[in-house]
Each structure stands twice: as C-alpha cells, then as structure tokens.
C-alpha cells in the first residue's frame, strides 16, 4: 500500500512539474482589453535586416494562405503584419470533427539582435453540420474571444483559450525556426541535359 501511495504521489508530482515546464508564457490582456500573446525573443548575431527578411519569408510561406498570410509590410518601420486562422476540433474517443475556426492578427517587429511578435484580435467562428454531413463555418457568427464568456459559455471559452495558447506557441516556435534558418535562395532550377541528343 505504501508503495502504491508513493507511486501515486510521484505521478502527481511529475504531472505538476510537466505542467509548470509548459507554463512558460500565457495569454494576457492588452490596453484595449483584448487577449494578446506577446513575446520578445533575442537573436544575437543577426542584424535587423536579416531577421526582417526571414520573418517576411515566414509570413509568406510558413502556412497555406487560408492559415496565415501577409497583410501589410512596412519596411521603414521594420514591421510586418499578417492574418491567419486555425481550426479547433471537438474530440472524443473515436470521433473528431471541426468545432470552430479561430482567426487572429499577428504583428512582427525587428531590431538588431532581437524581434518581438504578438497575436491578438482572436475571433471564434463556430462550425455546424450541414445536410451533407460536412462541418462548415456558420455564416455571420463571429465572436471576439473577449466576449466569449457571454456568448460561448465558460466551458467553451476555457477550451478555446487553451487552444489559442497552444497554437500561439506553435506559431511562435515556427517563427523562431524561420528566423534561425536562412531564407531559401530563389535559384533557377538548373536545366537537366537530355540523355538522348541529336548529335550522336
């Protein structure tokens, strides 16, 4: 029995440590009372121009256009803005279907050796089943996450907030990977010389 209790405590402690390790950042409210995911990342050794180019490449190519696209590019202020969205699903043991799409705006600003980015304007577009057994967005129903408690209820809001955080982290990770790796050079594909030639 003692061993059982020790194992149980160890398992619980493990979960707590794991959860703490995950909680390195979180969603907050900005001055307009909107949910925001804000991060500053140091990137020593890279100048602003390089980081800017790589961030631009991220916004253009990291995801398909329906998931993230460049909205505005301000070279003078070294600022990039994009808009995107991710699907969230309702999942049970054997079933899973689209539950909603959460759209967002992303801004990236760069300086020598560092960059910052933030995701905000999160809006929930619910999905519903259509007559063909597909799940499709409900036309005209858009709920800013800040109004989620009133419109969606506590349980759904908590669920969406968690998914916003998970996805924001994921987007941040992918941005970091793009900043770390040189943008692919746009080289012309070399022409392969034919095996069967005219003069033989």
């Amino acid at each position: 029995m003692k061993r059982l209790i020790i194992v149980l405590l160890l398992a619980l402690a493990g979960s707590a440590v794991y959860a703490q390790a995950q909680q390195t950042d979180s969603l907050g409210f900005d001055e307009n009372n909107k949910y925001i995911y804000y991060q500053v990342a140091a990137q020593p050794g890279l100048n602003a121009d390089t980081i800017y180019k790589r961030a631009l490449n991220f916004l253009k190519t990291a995801y398909t256009k329906d998931k993230l696209k460049l909205k505005k590019q301000d070279d003078g202020k070294a600022t990039l803005m994009g808009e995107g969205g991710f699907l969230v699903s309702k999942k049970a043991l054997v079933s899973k279907h689209e539950d909603a799409k959460i759209t967002y705006d992303i801004t990236v600003e760069v300086k020598d050796g560092k960059y910052r980015y933030w995701l905000t304007n999160f809006v929930v577009i619910p999905y519903e089943r259509d007559r063909y057994a597909n799940f499709v967005p409900v036309n005209g129903k858009k709920t800013p996450l800040e109004h989620g408690l009133r419109v969606l209820g506590q349980k759904d809001l908590d669920d969406y907030l968690e998914k916003v955080l998970v996805n924001s982290r994921e987007i941040g990770k992918r941005l970091k990977n793009f900043i770390l790796s040189p943008a692919p050079a746009t080289t012309k594909e070399s022409k392969i010389s034919p095996v069967i030639k005219k003069d033989w």
Binding site: S89, R129, A133, E162, K163, V166
Partner: peptide
C-alpha cells in the same frame, strides 16, 4: 498532454 490539438486533417472523421 503531448497530443497536438491543432491537427486538422484526421484520417477518418466519425460524427
């Protein structure tokens, strides 16, 4: 915890 909640293209959807 480790599961990716953002996966959008499940192999088979049952509803």
């Amino acid at each position: 915890n480790a599961q990716d909640s953002t996966q959008t293209d499940p192999p088979l959807t049952i509803t």
